Simulated scan of single mutants.
Amino acid sequence: MVRMLPKSRVLSILALGLGCILLGVGFVLPRLVDADRPVPLDLGDTQLTVSDPEATIGKAYLATAGEKDPDVITGPVSRNVAVTLGDPSDSDEAAATVGVTTMRDDMAESMGDQAGLLDAEIWTMSVDRYSGEATGDVKVADTLGTPAGEATVDGQWLKFPENTEQTGYPFFDTLLRRAVPTSFDRSEEIDGHEVYVFRQEMDAEPVMEGNPHHMRLTQNVTTEGKDGGPGKSTVSTLHRSGTREITVEPSSGMIVSVREDLHDYYAAEGGAETGLLLDLHGETPEEDRGALLSQAVEVGEDRPVRTWSLVCVVIGAIVTVAAGVVTLRPQRKGRKE
């Protein structure tokens, strides 16, 4: 007759197999599951705003301005970058639609968004969900009634890489249509969380080089001639000077606020300023910064892969040793009849 194994021996063999499985999972898990989290597709706060309650707005933005109207006016202006992530997507990349608008807030409130709109662009691209860099084809629609055109986004723009370092990163400027270097300026503490601040400096940067089709690229300037008659007419081109400070939560690399001190102006061939487009000195409102920081901290939290791995290894080792002892222990012989 075939002798049946005792129930305790069967259970110990099953436990031995389970222990080996737990050991294998514990050792392999860090290689199969990345501890870093990609940027979620369903972010709650997806808009970054820079507001200046007293921006100086040039005549090129004043569609109804006449010759006798002032060359500049003062009013509240906000610049908004709104990001939508969606399909096609995978664990590494996602499709992104980015709306960039410059609004004259007082007119938007009284007459609607369309009346207060100074500039608008819609960008479409794929982005790396870890580094934030654009991948694949990039298109931008920046003129009403015209199809989107090909474009390039280099450097960082929507976010910085995970585990951002205290070093310089090129940061994309939408007006210049190219990345401008930044330098690490300082670290700060906001609501108990450390953030990094990067500073970008621009000095008389010509818009024509990277954005030759900008709808407000040029401005005609006519000097007064002798005896009050018409003088010489020249063409000035758009330039940008100023600084930008980008505040980043380093674990996630997500941008939580921006400070801009930008002077967009027209300059003649020799570099002399001939007119103003926009002079903006604004920053992200504090309440928006708090919400973006809380979200960034949550995204930056690593998956507890190492903890899970250690737990599996420890439990697996205990179960394997205990089950092995029981399984290999000699069986007692039964009494002979």
Rank of each mutant, 00 (worst) to 15 (best):
K139I: 10
A134F: 08
F160A: 01
V140A: 01
A120R: 14
Y130D: 06
W157L: 03
Q156K: 08
A134S: 08
Q114F: 07
S126N: 15
R129L: 10
D113K: 12
E133I: 03
A115R: 02
A141W: 08
G145F: 07
D137P: 06
A134W: 06
K159I: 09
A148E: 10
V153K: 01
P147G: 05
S126I: 11
E162V: 12
Y130T: 11
L118N: 01
I122L: 14
N163M: 12
G155W: 03
Q114Y: 10
Q114N: 09
T164A: 05
D154G: 13
V138E: 00
W157K: 02
V127Q: 05
G149N: 12
F160S: 00
A115T: 07
L118P: 03
R129S: 04
A141S: 13
V153G: 03
Y130K: 09
L117C: 05
A120C: 07
K159Y: 05
K139V: 10
G132C: 02
T146H: 11
G136D: 08
E133Y: 11
G136N: 03
T135R: 15
G155N: 03
D119C: 04
V127H: 02
N163D: 11
V138Y: 03
L117P: 02
L144D: 15
L117Q: 09
D128H: 02
A120P: 08
